[in-house]
Design a protein around this nucleic acid. Structure first.
Lengths: 266, 266
DNA sequence: TACATGCGTCCCTTGTAAGAGACAACACCA
DNA sequence: TGGTGTTGTCTCTTACAAGGGACGCATGTA
């Protein structure tokens, strides 16, 4: 059959496995990919589409989805033949939160901070080599700078990214950052050396500010949250308009650092 | 170490599968059981203990746990050889919440209601045949009547349970309710017929009040949330001291019903 | 009316993952 | 000291799940 091999590499998301071949895949892996795919697309997906998106055989996909639905990890979405995350995942997620002091307290701090400053505030962590917004609170500007929880962004695009990598050796950092990560949404390219220098600087100063990276209108202020002396577990950050005055920025950074410190485990 | 902890037979929650034999089990099923087990115990568990608790072979358990940890669904807990839910599950859970209007709005209503009344308020749903607290907000009494999110309770023990089953035929109800579900924590037994009668009554009146069922000190008020005309998708409920006056109870029920109605899809 | 493209279910084959069990390393207690 | 309990890794076998593919039934569109 001449498989022109639907190359199609639009590929679900960062699914950067080595592919030993197109051999059979373990059911569990398929499941993990399904979950990632749903997370990447943030919407209910038809089973056929799912199979296509993951290059998974249809029959297998049907079976797995049925099992997951029965288990409550997935739910059939309203119109009938689409699936999305299920209640069980929500319950497990809440259990995770309850068991995780840092996250629980972090969410509160973020909400408080955003209420006090009126700016968008976020709690971020490193998750499978990417910057992940774990919680965000929208702020009160007429045009909100909002971003969804769970959104994953290349580390070099953000101030938090620079802090989250502080403390790792160069080789580790190189292993994490891909070539594409260094290219900003507008096409500009960040030099790896500059980035690593930024990281070192952030490590020393204990905070980080970036301007106009992800988009041209915002500045990003970040401060580290420590889980142990020297170990940065998360960051708190504020996203403010790029034309925010020096004074105000300075004040916000100070406030941010104080709150982040409060969050850190003593 | 030996924290008393007679782990004897606190058995892994409602894992009521038929066991066709002790034949091989699919990896995915093992995984689902692992997640359920963690959810039931609400704490980090050692891998060996996990294997024992699920009657799973140790080698398999090690393999699966490693895979799940790599995937971020589980995380190694602080001390080293215990596992609990991971960040990914939290992120998926939040995605579920974002995609689910009822849940999102319901959480708000519950928080508001509990702030306004000072009583513990909850949003409940049917989940795999059990009453599940999907969100709860503690109230402000000196002795809080609190219950964790995700807690699952036999349907006959609660007012919400009576509403959640309204609209099902008797046979369906019988299929869902087990013999043990009918026995209250204090040993008393609810007659199935009485229970079904309660359900019918709740269906007609549009609310339900139970007294001293789960414990001797509380009353439980519940009102239905509809996802479609006639289809009860969830309930909102209030947990109040059992000696709350008739007047106040009446007022709270009225308020509760109004808020639950507001939540219902038009 | 044909032809395509979607869905959901089924059956059969075969590659492989689940599992038994042996292993070394550690901890505990008598 | 040896006995009894962990924990984590590795091997090899075979029962069984993943996957190919065909089916029937809906769509839509030429």
């Amino acid at each position: 059959m001449q498989d022109g091999k639907t190359q199609s590499e639009w590929q679900a998301a960062g699914m950067n496995e080595e592919k030993p071949a197109n051999s059979r895949e373990k059911g569990l892996n398929r499941v993990l990919h399904i979950l990632e795919f749903l997370h990447a697309n943030q919407r209910a997906i038809g089973i056929g589409e799912l199979a296509k998106g993951l290059n998974a055989p249809r029959s297998t996909t049907y079976t797995l989805v049925r099992e997951l639905v029965d288990a409550g990890l997935l739910e059939m979405a309203g119109d009938g033949n689409r699936v999305y995350f299920g209640k069980k995942l929500y319950l497990y997620g809440m259990a995770y939160m309850r068991g995780n002091d840092l996250l629980r307290r972090g969410r509160q701090e973020v909400d408080t901070l955003s209420r006090e400053t009126g700016e968008t505030s976020e709690l971020c962590m490193l998750q499978s080599g990417r910057y992940t917004i774990v919680h965000s609170s929208p702020g009160m500007r007429p045009f909100r700078i909002s971003s969804a929880t769970g959104l994953q962004i290349p580390l070099p695009w953000t101030a938090s990214g620079r802090l989250l990598l502080a403390g790792l050796e160069r080789s580790r950092i190189e292993a994490i950052i891909t070539e594409e990560d260094l290219v900003l949404p507008d096409g500009r390219r960040i030099e790896l050396d500059d980035f690593i220098e930024d990281i070192a600087k952030a490590r020393v100063t204990g905070y980080c500010v970036t301007s106009g990276l992800v988009d041209a209108y915002t500045k990003c202020l970040a401060a580290p949250v420590f889980s142990a002396p020297g170990k940065i577990e998360a960051t708190m950050c504020l996203v403010v308009p790029i034309d925010t005055s020096e004074e105000r920025t300075g004040g916000l950074v100070a406030l941010l650092r104080e709150r982040a410190a409060r969050l850190s485990i003593s």
